[in-house]
Amino acid sequence: MDRFSVFTSRLVEKSENFTSGHRACQGCAEALAVRLVLKALGRDTIVAMATGCMEIISSPLPLTAWKVPWIHNAFENPAAVISGCESGMKALMRKGRVPKKKINFVGMGGDGATADIGMGPLSGALERGHDMVYVCYDNEAYMNTGIQRSSSTPYGASTTTSPAGTVSFGQQTEKKNLTQIAVAHNIPYVATACPSFPFDLLEKVKKAAALPGPAYIHILSVCPTGWRIQTEDAIKFGRLAVDSCIFPLYEVTHGKYNLNYRPYKKIPVEEYLKGQGRFRHLTDEEISHIQTTVDRDYQKILKRCEED
């Protein structure tokens, strides 16, 4: 993000490429994220999307919320399918069958599709260096099938397959750090974003699309249904996640780290956890453990940002 850019809502693209009227739950921040991403990308975009909430809610044929070419594919395949689209269009342009122009190739998937079953194809696409953007909408569980844990579910969260009770405190493992996995591929652009910070998100998507080569954007998408929060609080919890540094907003451009948002005052992680039904069983001991891991991870990011 350029230091002297001016952001006002008046200057944001007005046209909608992901239209209203879809079937997302009330307060779905993931649908908001898709809307913002599509705003930033514009009409010259091809989207390959994995099975998941966003696919189900946006494409009940004959209805569709998409104003761009959109291809749906099985759970593990968005990165592979968009690789194929990019290669195919490249061939068509070389042969002169379609006019040469800049097209954004975008793979989209939820955290299950990205962190679990589609990890291999995503890694392959990033390694092959296709000119594409992969956007992961991370709502921290398999929400579409009924809130089952994924490897992106945070420590301590109660889901239907990691239920909290007398024997267990919920998710036993720590959240998989997908952003760092993407960074490890040495691709031109990796960023984290959250629809609670819309200008930041828009800029990152524009940058990812503009830079040649693969880019990866990890978007924290608050899910009121799965996180057990009030529907009107989705934006608030996105801000709390960033302000408590459990989800820092940063970007890595050609290996160079940049922290996009430094909270004015870093709030304790408890404030983020306490309003959520999925964390309500946590004891002080577990919360302090989470605080330790959050501090540890945040310091790592800070250090890298300061070094660069």
Partner: peptide, 17 residues
Amino acid sequence: PITPQNEIPEYMSRRMD
């Protein structure tokens, strides 16, 4: 997870523990 069999893993996650 895959619909319509999610209740099996959900039941097993409780019961096996």
